[in-house]
């Protein structure tokens, strides 16, 4: 997985690309570190470029959401597609992290 970060008026958009699995652990933890330190109020994960997520990837989303709750950064997701959308719907992750489909 790789990603790009864009900040605008306290809102960070992180565009994820590739596969969100255990191998993405290090990169994803950098994103979480940034959420905690960079003084933003909202972080939107753009999943449009993500083509696969597994349960380890869902675990990373839980981790990011819990970190966001601790430092009062609202985490959101948007535009999941294909298998990623299926996984989010099956696991109802949009009920814990707001998701724009």
């Amino acid at each position: 997985m790789n990603y790009t970060v864009r900040d605008q008026a306290g809102v960070r958009e992180v565009e994820l690309r590739g596969q969100l699995t255990f191998e993405a652990n290090d990169a994803f933890r950098q994103i979480i570190d940034g959420m905690e330190k960079d003084g933003i109020v909202e972080c939107v994960l753009n999943l449009g470029g993500l083509d696969f997520i597994d349960s380890a990837g869902l675990g990373l989303l839980v981790l990011a959401n819990n970190a966001g709750n601790r430092v009062s950064v609202q985490l959101k997701m948007k535009h999941p597609r294909g298998q990623v959308r299926d996984m989010i719907e099956i696991s109802e992750f949009h009920t814990i992290i707001p998701c724009e489909f």
């Binding site: 839980v62 719907e89 099956i90 696991s91 109802e92 992750f93 009920t95 814990i96």
Partner: peptide
Amino acid sequence: ASVGLPLGVSPKA
């Protein structure tokens, strides 16, 4: 169909 939060994620599930 299959919809439901995994176990252990949220007490409100």
